[in-house]
Every structure is written in structure tokens, then in C-alpha cells.
Simulated scan of single mutants.
Amino acid sequence: MRVLVTGADGFVGRHACAALRAAGDEVVEVHGPRGEGISSTALHFDIADEAKVKAAVSEVKPDSVLHLAGFSSVAKSHQNPARVFAVNTMGVVHLLTALRESAPKARVLLVGSGEVYGPVAEGTLAKEGHPHVPLSPYAASKSAGELAGEQFFRSYGMEVILARPFNHLGAGQDPTFVVPSFAAQIRAIALGTVDPILRTGNLDAIRDFSHVKDVVDAYRLLLLKGEAGQAYNVGSGEGRTIRSLLEEMLQLSGVQARIELDPARLRPSDIPSLVADTGKLRALGWAPRLTVADALRDVLGPRVGSN
């Protein structure tokens, strides 16, 4: 299939494009404004620019769209809510409007976030029917983007599928995210360039972690078999504290360090526990192939974690 991948120059986008090509798909990459020069064959535009989105979709006329472009930081979303909604919500509207005009039969996977559920009682899995209780501009903008997708499905019969990924890990993730931040600090400690002190935010939060390669496999499956108008959680279905990940990373690396709370790394609002019910996705035939330990080794890289 001919797949238009927005956000192709991002962490997940790079893994997704590789997986789609390995499966034999034709991939047309869309890079954001900061992706200029990375690829001479990719399209470059801001998903919040309606005119450029329309022009690109009219040119490509894709069979399928994997929509990954977006503002991805929960923590930073509190600093610029207007930009977050312009990208994560209006970007969806621009894309679907353009597809309705130029490629109305394309199957579209809108990648949202499990953050839309907000707080879920510890020991309870978030199901797709769970109400949305967003605690950040990021989560609210993703929820609003989903509403737009549902409206285009209901009103115009477009093949829109919703993915709600939970936390995913792997090589190439921005160091502003928690696990790559730990990895950068661990590498620096291992090299002896800093004191053996690891600075962290809240380590008691419980999250659902998956390897990014399993996540992108789920996305391709949803493009092929997902039911239009439906939402699918993408995760492991297992909860772990951030602290347990950090302890495993230290064990894998052989590094010893003192852990210190850094108030600057705490979010204005945080969710104590968020774990996915993945029954709908698994019913389509998906199951994870890789482990969290595999992902942590990939994040740590070849210089660390060879024990």
C-alpha cells in the first residue's frame, strides 16, 4: 500500500517508516519544518499549515495515512497550549479535510495517546470506553483530535481509526523524555564526566511500557485490519513504576549512583497510574515480540549495558 507518514522524522516515525518498507509498502515521508535537509525525497511542512497540508495530500493521494506528526511532550505542553492545540488538534482537521477532498477512500490511523484517560485507579486497566479526563494541554489536544476524527467518520464515512498508544521506548527517543534522560545521565556517570548522582522527577508513577518496534507493528496492523470509527489501545497491558525502570537500567549498565529528586523535573499535574487494556488490539492478532529490557538496552546503547 502507498502510505503517507506524517512526523516521519520523529522518534516513532523513523521506526514506522523502516517497518512499513520492510513489509513491502511504498512510503511517502512528511517531515516537519525542522526536518529540512534530512531527506531530499521527503515532503516538508508544518502540519498546522492548512494550505501546505492540502497541497501535499493532493499531490500524493495516498491509500493509507499514518498520522504521527504532533507536539509530543506532556511536560512542555503546559508552557504553550495554543501551539499544542494548533498542531495536535487543528493538524488533524487540516489533514482530514485535505483527504476528504483528494483521497476520500484512504484509511487513516490517527495516533493519539493513552494520556487522554487521565487518572485510572491503580490495578484497573484503561479500556477504550473509559471516559476522557485529560490533565494536560497535550492530553486535551489529543482528545479533541480524536473527536474530529470521529466526526469525519460519522459525517463523511471516512475510514478513520484511532490508536491510543501508551509509553513506548527504543533507540532515538528525545532525551527530554524520562528514560532517555536516565540513559544520558547513566552514560555520563559511566564515562566519569559527572558525579554519580541521578536526578529524577516522580519515580512512583505507574506506566505501561512497550518497545517502539512492537508499537509500529501494531500501527501497520491497525491500518490493515482496524475497524473504522473505533479506538484501540496500544500497550503491554502491564504496569511498572518509573523507579523499577531506573533500577533495571542501573543493573543493566553496572553503574552505581545516588538518586536525587529534582523539583524542576516534576510535572504541574501527573497521573499516578495508567495501564492499558489491550484486548481489542490483541483480538486482531497483535502480540509484543520484544521486552522492556530489550528497549532499555537499545536506549542505553552499545557503550553501556553490555554486562
Score class of each variant (00 low, 15 high):
Leu68Arg: 11
Leu284Asp: 14
Gly235Tyr: 01
Val212His: 10
Gly32Cys: 06
Lys61Val: 10
Pro131Gln: 02
Ala126His: 09
Arg21Tyr: 00
Ala126Ile: 02
Glu101Ile: 01
His130Cys: 10
Glu101Lys: 01
Met1Leu: 05
Glu29Thr: 03
His15Arg: 06
Pro272Lys: 00
Pro62Cys: 12
Ala140Ser: 14
His168Cys: 09
Asp262Gly: 07
Lys61His: 11
Arg2Glu: 00
Lys54Glu: 15
Phe71Pro: 04
Glu227Pro: 09
Leu250Ser: 15
Gly201Arg: 05
Glu26Arg: 08
Val194Asp: 09
Leu274Tyr: 00
Glu36Ile: 10
Pro165Phe: 00
Leu246Arg: 02
Val234Thr: 06
Pro62Phe: 15
Ala228Leu: 02
Asp294Trp: 05
Leu300Tyr: 12
Gly170Arg: 03
Val65Thr: 14
Leu43Ser: 13
Arg243Cys: 02
Gln230Pro: 07
Arg14Asp: 12
Ile259Tyr: 07
Met90Phe: 13
Pro104Phe: 01
Lys225Tyr: 03
Arg154Ile: 02
Ile38Lys: 14
Val116His: 05
Glu248Ile: 00
Asp298Lys: 05
Thr89Cys: 11
Arg14Trp: 07
Ala190Arg: 08
His130Arg: 08
Val28Cys: 12
Glu227Cys: 05
Ala293Ile: 04
Ala264Asn: 06
Trp286Gln: 07
Asn307Pro: 11
Ala75Arg: 14
Val234His: 02
Arg107Ser: 13
Ile189Gly: 08
Asp294Arg: 00
Pro302Gln: 09
Val133Tyr: 01
Arg107Asp: 04
Gly279Gln: 12
Gly129Arg: 02
Tyr138Phe: 14
Asn202Ala: 09
Leu252Pro: 07
Gly239Thr: 06
Leu68Trp: 06
Arg220Cys: 09
Leu245Cys: 08
Gly35Phe: 01
Pro268Trp: 06
Leu43Asn: 10
Ala23Arg: 01
Gly114Asp: 03
Gly226Thr: 06
Val84Asn: 11
Glu50Ser: 15
Ala184Gln: 11
Gln230Cys: 06
Gly285Asp: 12
Met249Gly: 11
Asp63Gly: 10
Asp25Glu: 12
Val53Thr: 13
Leu261Gly: 15
Val30Arg: 02
Gln79Phe: 03
Val53Pro: 13
Glu128Trp: 01
Ala293Glu: 14
Pro268Tyr: 09
Ala228Lys: 10
Leu274Glu: 10
Thr291Asp: 10
Pro119Cys: 02
Val92Lys: 06
Glu260Gln: 15
Asp195Asn: 08
Val275His: 02
Arg267Ser: 07
Asp217His: 05
Pro302Met: 10
Val304Leu: 15
Phe182Ser: 08
Gly285Phe: 11
Leu125Ser: 09
Glu36Ala: 14
Gly226Arg: 12
Ala86Tyr: 00
Val275Leu: 07
Ala51Gln: 14
Leu4Val: 08
Ile189Glu: 12
His130Tyr: 04
Ser269Asp: 05
Asp46Cys: 11
Arg265Cys: 03
Asp63Arg: 07
Gly229Cys: 04
Leu66Ile: 12
Leu252Glu: 14
Ala55Pro: 15
Ile206Phe: 03
Gln251Cys: 08
Lys105Cys: 06
Tyr117Ser: 03
Gln79Ile: 00
Val12Glu: 01
Ala163Pro: 01
Tyr117Gln: 08
Gln230Phe: 02
Gly305Tyr: 08
Leu300Ser: 13
Tyr219Cys: 04
Ala103Glu: 12
Thr193Gln: 11
Val275Asp: 10
Gly149Asn: 09
Val194His: 03
Gly239Asp: 09
Thr41Ile: 05
Arg267Tyr: 13
Ile161Asp: 04
Asn167Pro: 01
Val92Asn: 12
Val92Ala: 09
Val120Ser: 03
